[in-house]
């Protein structure tokens, strides 16, 4: 009976879509990490940069996650790393998704020369292995965190541009877009009102998937000395460090788990949001009652 009443008010069903177990797990994990990012220094049992003679010590009451090759507390470093890796990756994904989708949408809508220029630039970037091109750009600009973000932006926008362009091309000639233009609106209003809302879902899903790539790319650049620099407790750097000490599994495992958990959490949330933002997905719930 409740289903019948909600069919007239679709807005009510958004929380329903967000109520699946995986989504709850995702939200809880992401909220936990957000808390870690905010409270960071208060949660660290030790100084993440303080070295000690107690090298590669296994898990113990004093060091819950053990210590790394310089005797630093891994738990403290994982907590400190959250404040670097998470905001930076979010920033990067937000930037490349905005720049990439805007360029892709404009290319798809305007076509012609604009389309050619934007897409050939994208091809140019995609022709190189991501990490190598990012290295080249970062090296040319000089090693710093800002330059690392710029370098990553340069290599990540084309995938958004390509996906958005193809979606816009598909949506551009659909009848409701044409019908909108017949009402006398300009192309930008048409893009905003009719095209973007109908292509945003897949792009949104891509950003959540890309979040993991962003963390890995950042780690890769850091590993090569072009992003964050040791002894900064960045997760990627910590994993690279741990790989060299194979027997002390905890050095790489805990930052690795941290990356894994936040990436999964974002994927779960992304899936749920994509479904919740699409009114047609609600039909699957409502149609049973109809």
């Amino acid at each position: 009976m409740t289903l019948v009443s909600t069919t007239t008010r679709p807005r009510r069903r958004v929380p329903e879509a967000l109520r699946s177990p995986l989504t709850v797990v995702g939200v809880v994990v992401a909220a936990g990490w957000l808390l870690v990012v905010v409270l960071g220094p208060l949660l660290q049992p030790a100084d993440p940069l303080a070295q000690s003679p107690d090298r590669l010590a296994p898990l113990s009451a004093a060091h819950w996650f053990g210590t790394d090759s310089l005797g630093r507390d891994v738990l403290s470093r994982v907590i400190a790393g959250a404040r670097i890796s998470i905001p930076l990756s979010l920033l990067l994904v937000a930037l490349s998704a905005s720049v990439g989708s805007l360029l892709g949408a404009v290319a798809g809508l305007l076509g012609g020369v604009v389309d050619e220029v934007v897409m050939r630039l994208a091809d140019l970037v995609l022709a190189f292995p991501t990490i190598i091109l990012a290295m080249v750009v970062a090296a040319a600009l000089g090693p710093s965190l800002t330059n690392a973000v710029i370098a990553m932006l340069v290599v990540t926008w084309p995938q958004y541009a390509r996906v958005t362009r193809s979606l816009v091309l598909g949506a551009r000639d659909r009848e409701f877009v044409v019908a909108g233009r017949l009402l006398g609106i300009g192309w930008f209003t048409s893009l905003r009102r009719d095209v973007v809302p109908n292509v945003a879902g897949p792009v949104f899903a891509l950003t959540t998937l890309d979040f993991g790539n962003a963390i890995l790319l950042l780690s890769g650049l850091s590993f090569l000395g072009l992003g964050t620099v040791p002894p900064t407790p960045e997760w990627g750097l910590m994993v690279s460090d741990g790989v060299q000490n194979f027997t002390a599994w905890w050095v790489a495992a805990f930052p690795g788990l941290a990356i894994c958990s936040i990436v999964l959490a974002f994927n779960f949330i992304g899936d749920a949001l994509r479904d919740a933002l699409d009114p047609r997905m609600q039909k699957a719930v409502g149609s049973r009652a109809l």
């Binding site: 305007l110 659909r174 009848e175 409701f176 044409v178 019908a179 909108g180 233009r181 017949l182 009402l183 006398g184 609106i185 300009g186 192309w187 009102r193 009719d194 809302p197 109908n198 699409d278 009114p279 047609r280």
Partner: peptide, 29 residues
């Protein structure tokens, strides 16, 4: 043809109903 410009105001009094009712309304609004 209006292309990327806005349709001229004098022509807005000519409107069309399309063939496919499943495609002619924005599904998200």
């Amino acid at each position: 043809p209006y292309g990327l410009r806005k349709r001229p105001a004098q022509l807005l009094r000519l409107q069309m109903v399309f063939q496919n009712p499943y495609a002619s309304l924005n599904p998200r609004r």
